[in-house]
Nucleic acid binder design. Structure first.
Lengths: 345, 345
DNA sequence: GCCATTTTGGCAACCGATTGACAAACGTGA
DNA sequence: TCACGTTTGTCAATCGGTTGCCAAAATGGC
């Protein structure tokens, strides 16, 4: 063995290198550019040669090198998705929808999570943006200007948020709320409470406004009760406030709050839905684990993810990048056991 | 305007192109290779020039083009993760762990889901493999040979599965099961039932073996009851079999089965845990939504994802690619309300 | 002040695929 | 058979960053 023996290097990388169009060209006895054309511009090359090239490509198990293509075309065929918390069940379906839509168009989904401040989010976005063709922000805490700044580099779509000049995907909360209020009105309820989400949450305000409008239309009363955090424990802590509110039905900002509240009430021997009806928002995974099952106003999260990915793709195809599409995403009421007739006074 | 005016092209791509090292070189008055060295080989360049270049890079908001780097180095700084079902709560934490570990090392996580056959999985893997440095298979239905074939191209790590010559991440089920059986023995139970998972599930067999061993050690009886599918509905359907099994405690293959079973039993006015104790596996999101809360044998899924990503990275660093590391991942019992003393006969 | 040594920066090739420009080969009609 | 138009395949440049090699410049010793 000579001193050039690269045994150690071999140990580092014992894999067979991927085939290139040059390998195919050699095997098929043509020029590499002919190979490229045969693979990407069908018809440009004679059928005979094309077949020979395809055969060689198959034999070598050829796959185009995405980096090489990206370098030349400037397109990575990749969409980035940034969420605050991967384990938040609301995002599972968004991720799924985006991934599905991306894969459908032969794009790949890149996923990143930021668990901290807006600073971390910006850092994550900056890290991702050079390697993707577009960016979906599912829970952005960034300032509008920061988001617009990102959009100057690559197409950006936001979900559950409205930012001027940026395409945004927002579910229309009204239909689901209308169904819920109609449902409650039909059960005889006349006074309902809304356990609100975080003060700064745009979504929570939207939900409250929609509830206000719907209850007014039905001639019902509605009160808003502030909560600490949108988690189960905070929901439990809301029990006294809910009981003293005089409401016979409660809509919580999200299912976690609703479930916590329901558990606490049941623990205090308050019957659900016998004494009080409870509804949540989002229809998360596990909303049917409770006894009774939680009635919830669900959003089409999967579709939101799909539309977001589709939004990126259409911007890449030259569409304007400031369209707001609510209409297509309609919330709806998912009936389970936690709502029932207003108790006799 | 001449007929060369490219107004439409501009409309397609109105974004400012990213700065390159050539832009920096021009601004700093040096050669592009000097820029490259200043940025990637600190010390190779005089401090004065280096500073000038860094200033120029900052001014132009420079970010290295990943495609260009990948083309030359062969490394994309990307890890692929393929799961069967993104919305399966068992995977959330795996995804999170893998993403966190990847981001920590300045790698990016690429996520893909296959919802169909092994054929789809192979297609997905093939689609991903050219654009990643390594592949994590979290729920592979592929044959061992197929997996080894993928591993010839890029580093591969499997989770919750053992494949010869492939690095695999498997949690050690014994500690959690031992804790559970000890817990049940302490409560006076002497006969327990295991509601099994899918016939072909390697994990389900492991769990059953571990339960058999632990019950034998404690002088308890154990019976295995086959189920249809590892979902809630199938759990409900198991109620009659469980009731006639004579067992006073049931361990289900996973939490969904356990929750379904518990709901059905409660619906039949069987008290949990008064008449029968129920345990699940996985400690999924929502296991605390039930009343009573579900006692479950949990696995450190986040860590599994982290170790898988770390496994890819260490193979890339030259480590052998056939290490099986169970030891580090230890299951443990999460106590909630669904287990209690054996009822008086 | 001169030579030897080290430091510093530039040149050019390279990674793999794509594409405009062009030449070779082919077919057709007169 | 020749001129012409069309089809088919080749050449070469390009994307942006990296790196081996070399020359110029700076440094140090005497």
């Amino acid at each position: 063995m000579s001193e050039n023996d690269r045994g150690t290097v071999n140990a580092v990388s014992p894999r067979k290198p991927a085939a290139t169009i040059y390998d195919i060209a050699q095997l098929a006895g043509v020029n590499a550019s002919t190979v490229s054309r045969a693979l990407s511009t069908p018809g440009r090359i004679s059928a005979k040669t094309e077949q020979k090239i395809h055969a060689a490509a198959k034999e070598l198990n050829y796959r185009v090198n995405p980096a090489a293509r990206a370098l030349l075309t400037g397109r990575t065929r990749t969409i980035g998705l940034i969420v605050a918390d991967i384990t938040n069940p609301v995002f599972f379906d968004i991720v799924r929808g985006a991934e599905r839509e991306a894969a459908e168009h032969d794009y790949t989904l890149v996923l990143a999570e930021f668990r901290e401040s807006a600073e971390t989010e910006m850092f994550t976005a900056r890290r991702l943006i050079p390697s993707v063709d577009g960016l979906i922000l599912a829970t952005s805490r960034l300032e509008p200007d920061e988001i617009r700044g990102l959009a100057e580099e690559k197409p950006v779509v936001v979900i559950n948020r409205e930012v001027e000049d940026i395409t945004s995907i927002v579910a229309d909360v009204a239909p689901g709320v209308d169904q819920a209020i109609t449902h409650l009105a039909g059960l005889g309820h006349t006074r309902i409470a809304y356990v609100a989400g975080p003060q700064r949450s745009w979504v929570s305000h939207k939900r409250w406004e929609s509830i206000l409008a719907a209850t007014a239309r039905s001639g019902m009363e509605a009160v808003e009760l502030p909560s600490e955090q949108p988690v189960m424990q905070a929901g439990r802590a809301m029990a006294p406030a809910v009981l003293s509110s005089g409401a016979t039905a409660v809509i919580a900002y999200n299912d976690l709050l609703a479930i916590g509240l329901m558990q606490e009430l049941i623990g205090r021997s308050v019957s659900v839905p016998g004494d009080i009806s409870i509804l949540g928002f989002d229809n998360i995974f596990g909303a049917d684990f409770t006894t009774p099952g939680l009635t919830s106003i669900g959003s089409p999260h999967t579709e939101a993810g799909m539309y977001a990915a589709r939004g990126i793709l259409s911007i890449l195809d030259g569409a304007p990048s400031d369209q707001t599409s609510h209409e297509a995403l309609v919330t709806s009421l998912v009936l389970r056991g936690s709502t029932g007739p207003r108790p006799a006074v």
